[in-house]
Nucleic acid binder design. Structure first.
Lengths: 212, 212
DNA sequence: TCATAGCTGTACCATAGAGTACGAATTTGC
DNA sequence: GCAAATTCGTACTCTATGGTACAGCTATGA
């Protein structure tokens, strides 16, 4: 009796949903590539096919559409990032793996574009930065912090603030992103691997307890 | 006989210079606040007083003016950052001081705005990111690396790549900037001090040699 | 004093943008 | 099959933009 086998949504609402998704996807592509001001609603209508009337019936303004796109971008980020931390007991290995996967995700073109969009527009649209942080970054921080807390408890990490540690490691990972934003430094496998090793290595040296 | 007491530049050229500066300053303010697309040449003329003819006689297009602004922004950054590293022999103290000053500089509203502008526009204007990195960030990296190299030589830091170390420390500092971009986290003295301590502390733990 | 380089103001052009209006065509639920 | 909800296409308004043209004004330099 759940809503998957007996959809309460009618054909109409279904196609409305699809339509909405299509709009958001197209808008997402354009906003990521051209920024807010560089995205034209008229052009969007042309890309999508259909009429302005229709577009405006789904989103009453450009800003509203933009908000929906930001929402979409952060939620897709969130979905992918929540699975980066395995339940492994090997601290060193887990951290390296985490850095690797996280950096790989950040290296993707759309991630770079999203980062640029958020950074560029959060001055004029304060919501954008806040949403991005709250719904994408912060979640990763807390998840990582919980992961680290286990190793503090087990004595493998120093007894210091886990959230702070998480922040520092993520900060390191994000710093690679800056060079990508600036068009410096490539997103190739080799440099990524080197960075993953450097970041997790630095972290462990700073926060791992000496053994024995 | 130097050119300060006997200016070779005529009154005309002097006032041209002033005019140009005024234009760049006004443009800078607008680009930083409104971004590239959000800056209007017509509005700029209005702010400056004078006529379009004049503005276009100094800069033949909006892009050319934008380039001049980026140039100005990076060069003013560079000028300030080159003096952050004292010749002190106390490693720990120097690093903490460096982080403090660097973070203070980054916390300034115009630095945040500049960071946003560069991040936001370097997708559409690849030059912008490259120039910003080459002329502002890279210089800081190499200066810091040279500074660190002295302590590697003296045995206070591990024998590892000084440029890499510099990159990591600056990366940490830059990570604070992200939160500012997103409008999360304030630029107040207290949090800055805490971050400076955390960054330099983490760095030292990771790269300082254990004593005796 | 005078020629002139440079400035001003204003009108103008072509293009583009967001958003509205509306009648006709199409799809949906029943 | 029919009424209602959507969608379509197109034309429209209003505002703004980067950039040009031009006639008159002003400070400069000799």
């Amino acid at each position: 009796m759940n809503d998957t086998d007996k959809p309460t949504i009618s054909r109409r609402e279904q196609s409305k949903q699809n339509r909405r998704d299509a709009i958001v996807q197209a808008a997402r592509a354009s906003f990521l590539e051209n920024g807010y001001a560089g995205t034209s609603m008229s052009a969007l209508v042309h890309t999508l096919g259909g009429s302005k009337q229709t577009l405006w019936s789904y989103f009453r303004s450009k800003e509203e559409l933009f908000a929906a796109v930001i929402e979409e971008v952060t939620s897709s980020f969130r979905a992918e990032l929540s699975q980066l931390l395995t339940g492994s007991d090997d601290l060193q290995r887990s951290l390296l793996d985490f850095c690797r996967s996280f950096l790989r995700r950040l290296d993707a073109d759309d991630a770079v574009a999203a980062w640029r969009l958020v950074a560029g527009e959060s001055g004029r649209f304060p919501e954008v930065g806040r949403i991005f942080y709250e719904r994408a970054v912060r979640l990763t921080e807390t998840t990582l912090a919980q992961f680290l807390a286990r190793f503090i408890a087990s004595g493998e990490l120093r007894e210091e603030s886990a959230p702070r540690m998480a922040e520092l490691l993520l900060g390191l990972c994000a710093s690679r992103q800056n060079k990508r934003l600036w068009g410096v430094g490539t997103g190739d496998e080799a440099s990524r691997e080197a960075d993953a090793i450097a970041y997790s290595g630095m972290f462990l040296r700073a926060f791992a307890r000496e053994k024995g």
